Simulated scan of single mutants.
Amino acid sequence: MQGFSTRAIHAGQEPDPATGAVTVPIHPSSTFAQDGVGGLRGGYEYSRSANPTRTALQECLAALEGGRHAYAFGSGMGASDVLLRVLLKPGDHLVIPHDAYGGTFRLVDKVLTQWGVEYSTADLGDLDALRSVIRPTTKAIWCETPTNPLLGIADIAALAQAAHAHHATLVVDNTFASPYLQSPLALGADVVLHSTTKYVGGHSDVVGGALICDDDALAERIGTLQNSVGSVPGPFDAWLTLRGAKTLAVRMERHSDNAERVVEMLSAHPAVAKVLYPGLPEHPGHEVAAKQMRRFGGMVSFLVEGGKEAALKVCASTKLFTLAESLGGVESLIEHPHQMTHASVAGSALEVPDSLVRLSVGIEDVEDLLEDLRQALEA
């Protein structure tokens, strides 16, 4: 198999046969001429069903995750919705992380339960905790590793064994790690999910999602439902995501470099109560992360001494770290999960600490980032 960056730059992206263009064209057409009834040119008839630019992105994503099938969506939540409806029916049971992403929790708790799906939460870093909530009706285990925003780690290979022993499907949300840092399919996962809005796109200029799998029957069901409900990205969105994927490897190396320096500074700062980062030896998931990840990534969370008000003050005091939701772009972001990305879990068992601050460490000059955080912590 070719190296990661070679696949990122070339998979699905051969020069255009008509013009020799080395960049995949944007195909904005909604419909395609047919050579007689049913005579499709290249398999394209209508862009909800398939579009050449989207096909190029899907081939690239499949190659990056080491899968045979990939489907691109209009958002990560659109991908999540389609996958959950493919895997579950009324009366089925789902397991999600005890610190799941707020949007995932909202979709499960507010939408799927109205359809008759039941769910439990568990610390997926603890196999005994997982086994304690599995039921005969459990059809899927939904894993994030690292988790958002507490940076918890789950052992993908061990989860795959546990899931398959109960005839359940293991889904891994690989958004925080990206395909560069972690390969869930190779570790036994059945489906990989991405919010491609984040590290894959990488420039905070496009919203998208993706599902990647190896199983032909599962892939056909995903494709059929996606086409039926129309949860697809436009061709320009697909093109932007594909452009971002080309530089994923070099960006993830810089994100990781900068995050490690930020963690080092935060760990020694008296205004910081605790740093959450899987690269720290004291992190409970450190050994597993070191085994299944290339590096530890660009996401860092920390608890501020002084509680909620102190955390809010830090978030309001940075100048280079922009106060904003989302993550994975070239620019550094800071947010207060309790009132921002994870407000939807407030009052539930998944509620996050109100002294928690989450950083998406960008690729700026790291000394500038360190100085910005220092002055915010001391403001």
Rank of each mutant, 00 (worst) to 15 (best):
A79L: 04
A129C: 01
D81F: 14
Q114N: 15
I134C: 05
L124V: 13
H93Q: 04
M77K: 15
L112H: 01
V108K: 04
H93C: 01
S75V: 09
R131K: 13
V133P: 02
T121Y: 00
G103I: 09
L127V: 06
I134G: 02
V86L: 05
S120M: 00
L112Q: 07
K89L: 00
D99W: 07
V133G: 06
D123R: 07
K89A: 12
L127A: 06
Y119T: 11
G116Y: 01
D99A: 07
L83F: 09
I134R: 00
A70D: 03
S132H: 12
L130A: 02
G103K: 05
S75M: 15
S120N: 10
P90G: 00
A122D: 12
A129W: 01
I96M: 11
L94E: 03
F105T: 08
F105G: 02
L94K: 09
Q114V: 02
E118T: 14
V133A: 05
L94R: 03
L88Q: 06
V133L: 10
T104F: 05
V108Q: 06
V86H: 04
A70S: 05
S80D: 09
Y71R: 13
D126T: 08
V133C: 07
G76M: 14
D128W: 08
T121K: 00
P90L: 01
S80T: 15
R131N: 12
V111D: 12
L112V: 10
D123P: 02
T104E: 13
K89F: 01
T113L: 09
Y101C: 08
Y119K: 10
A100W: 04
D81P: 01
H93P: 06
L88P: 10
D81E: 15
G102L: 01
F105S: 02
S75A: 15
K89R: 07
